[in-house]
Design a protein around this nucleic acid. Structure first.
Lengths: 153, 153
DNA sequence: ATAATACTTGACTAATTTACTGGGTTTTAT
DNA sequence: ATAAAACCCAGTAAATTAGTCAAGTATTAT
């Protein structure tokens, strides 16, 4: 598993899409302005997302992007995997090159953790993130609520 | 939250340390050989880990590194935070620059997810990873068990 | 004391990834 | 036809990652 700023951009853009998609297709120009990501970088990201079927492009004037499937069918892991190439850097894949048992054990432990993280993110869908965010972010909100008003109009 | 190969190296090295620390201090040269990470890169990582108190160096012949505290007191989040600088790239921090409500909402959702990931990794200690790995990795093992023998001696 | 071992520090660099620029070409609503 | 948008592609600057090199300092077995 790998969670970089690239993956973050992708998740952010997908969230934007999920929030606005009901009003019609969302243009990359909109997302670019909303999220402060350059248009061409978004094009790169969306090329990956499109190839994985996570978004659907509509060409021509009035066009833009929709989610490729329902928000409750898209996991965070789906999105991150689409843009972040999977890097398997353990030198001993399976049984080869395992000069000592320790190395394999360490790698096995890492794989176990990696899998846990993946499964965790696979268990969170865009839909859940949107629906539960208010609840989940409550204590974070409360800290700021004294000096700031409601953020989301 | 950010999970890069750098963080992976750090976690891997810490696992190595946790596994061998009981036999006496572990040298970076050992870890370098076991995990295939260059010695000087390990030195960089361990400088960060040491400054956060996650490891303790023992100098002189026969020296090396120990865990800075018990394995059940060190979370994966601790390790990753020590080596991966925290990047907060949301342009609208709190309430500033929020031209539209949507941007803030998206960022709020991202922060919510980010927090979930952090708390998840904060909840996993080195100790738990070591103790539970066999259980956690069972179905992963089963997939490979047909073509490969036991990996860890 | 001395040498071996091991950690410390810092500057430097190659490789990779990230993020972006700029130029196109299609497609399609109007 | 025109313009708005997706789509495509080559390049590239900035940042990060991963590693090298070199000259230390500290510790301790001998």
């Amino acid at each position: 598993m790998r969670l970089s700023t690239k993956g973050r951009y992708a998740v952010t853009a997908m969230l934007d899409l999920a929030l606005h998609g009901s009003d019609g297709p969302v243009t990359l120009a909109d997302i670019s302005e909303n999220q402060g990501i350059s248009l061409s970088y978004l094009e790169q990201l969306f090329a990956s997302l499109r190839s994985k079927g996570l978004v659907r492009g509509v060409r021509g004037p009035g066009g833009g992007y929709f989610l490729g499937r329902d928000a409750d069918e898209i996991s965070i892991a789906n999105i991150i995997c689409a843009v972040d190439e999977w890097v398997e850097l353990t030198r001993c894949r399976g049984q080869e090159n395992c000069s000592r048992g320790h190395r394999c054990l360490t790698h096995s432990l890492w794989n176990s953790l990696s899998k846990q993280i993946y499964e965790f993110l696979e268990g969170i869908t865009l839909q859940e993130l949107i629906e539960n965010s208010d609840v989940l972010d409550i204590d974070g909100q409360q800290k700021r609520e004294k000096e700031s008003l409601k953020l989301a109009s």
